[in-house]
Design a protein around this nucleic acid. Structure first.
Lengths: 116, 116
DNA sequence: AGTAAATATGCTGCAAACGGCATATCCTGT
DNA sequence: ACAGGATATGCCGTTTGCAGCATATTTACT
């Protein structure tokens, strides 16, 4: 029960939902991309990503100076369904469209697909 | 976005998840049944049910001296999926089995199906 | 009308969550 | 070795959520 509670608590924050929605769309995103897309302070983003990581919802991997985050796999089916529903719900918001637009026009976007 | 945040916040409490799981199983349950099944104080249950009601996740209807709660219908599809996932996640817990057992053996259980 | 059961609400204290800021760590290029 | 960009973490003040208790409200029964 506490596992489920922690999972839904991790989903109950606008910054975290917006990060998850971008990860769902992009596959992998680094912290500076999220910082730029959401127009939020970097420590704020980092701490919310830590919350998602501790809840087991995302995985991070280092690639050069960047840390790339993506939605975790291998969760229980109901948890995957919950995350998918959260992403769909978050994508309904106009905030999400703005985030996507800002990410698209981000200058000096870190290179993608360097390492598998 | 705030709508989604409120929904997941409503799902991030053990009492509320257990109530939802029992509603999913029973269809409708009254406050005294939840109080008995969860072995929690009545004001505590009532306040958590108010939280669920304000989040739009449950509907209540009065039947004589009882107020019967059930999972709301007509939510956006992603929200229904989220609730269904929450119920499945909550049902994984041994707490849920205990709640079901206590409800089954509850003495003087209020009559069901009196009004449609 | 009066009592008892069922339910809801108000109040208070405490603990957890969040934002902002400063700072530490890690990596890259020179 | 140094400088700068990217990321993480610690601290602090404020807010939010929750538990516990008392109390109000509604309903049924006599």
């Amino acid at each position: 029960m506490e596992y489920a509670v922690n999972l839904f608590a991790a989903l109950s924050d606008p910054i975290r939902l917006r990060c998850l929605a971008l990860m769902a769309k992009e596959g992998e995103v680094c912290v500076c991309e999220l910082t730029h897309a959401l127009q939020a302070a970097q420590p704020k983003i980092s701490k919310h990503l830590a919350t998602l990581r501790e809840a087991g919802l995302v995985t991070d991997r280092r690639d050069a100076q960047w840390v790339l985050y993506s939605i975790a796999t291998g969760l229980p089916q109901w948890a995957q369904d919950a995350v998918a529903a959260a992403v769909r719900g978050a994508s309904d918001s106009p905030l999400y469209a703005d985030d996507v637009a800002r990410l698209k026009e981000m200058p000096a976007r870190p290179p993608k697909g360097r390492v598998a």
